[in-house]
């Protein structure tokens, strides 16, 4: 069988392929989670793991039970429908035990800019500014009351210039 003898090196190369394929299957066996594909193209065990996560957000109704005075300020302003935790962060721990965790006060120079920095993607009617031009780094609360962001009567008047947005 000289054909097989003279083609022996080809079988050696084919052997490399078989070895690589076996190696692939071995690695796959160890790295693919056992529950993968049980219900679909994902790891089934992740459902239980996600369900076991602790709830981190308390919800604005919970905040309002203790902080009614803030709710009173907020309800007539433009931020009436902005959830408390959108700016203050997830506070379920604080709601469960107010003494266990005290929330830090957000830096308004940073947090307000998240929504109000000018962007071409925002509608024209949405208040938006270039923070560096508008406030030169001052905290927004110098002029605006964050819970009801109309201009504070006591603060100096500064023109709010819309700087972007669609027509």
């Amino acid at each position: 069988m000289s054909v097989f003898k003279d083609a022996g090196h080809l079988f050696r190369f084919a052997g490399l392929f078989v070895l690589a394929f076996i190696l692939f299957l071995v690695i796959r066996h160890f790295v693919v989670p056992k529950s993968f594909g049980q219900y679909g193209h994902y790891r089934a065990a992740s459902i239980g793991e996600i369900a076991a996560h602790q709830v981190k957000y308390a919800g604005h109704e919970t905040c309002e039970t203790c902080h009614a005075e803030v709710f009173d300020v907020k309800k007539d302003g433009k931020h009436a429908h902005v959830n408390c935790e959108a700016c203050h962060g997830a506070l379920a721990k604080h709601a469960d035990d107010p003494g266990a965790m005290t929330p830090t006060k957000p830096d308004t120079a940073v947090i307000c800019a998240r929504c109000h920095t000018a962007s071409a993607a925002k509608p024209k009617g949405f208040p938006q500014v270039v923070p560096a031009d508008h406030s030169t780094g001052l905290p927004c609360e110098t002029c605006h009351q964050p819970h009801n962001p109309g201009m504070d009567a006591a603060a100096p008047k500064a023109p709010v210039k819309a700087a972007g947005g669609a027509k």
Binding site: D6, A7, R12, L16
Partner: peptide
């Protein structure tokens, strides 16, 4: 790189050519 095969007979090289 030889994969342990030093067979470079005329027939082996002909097979290589065809493959």
């Amino acid at each position: 790189m030889t994969l342990g095969s030093t067979n470079i007979s005329e027939r082996a090289l002909h097979i290589d050519e065809r493959v």
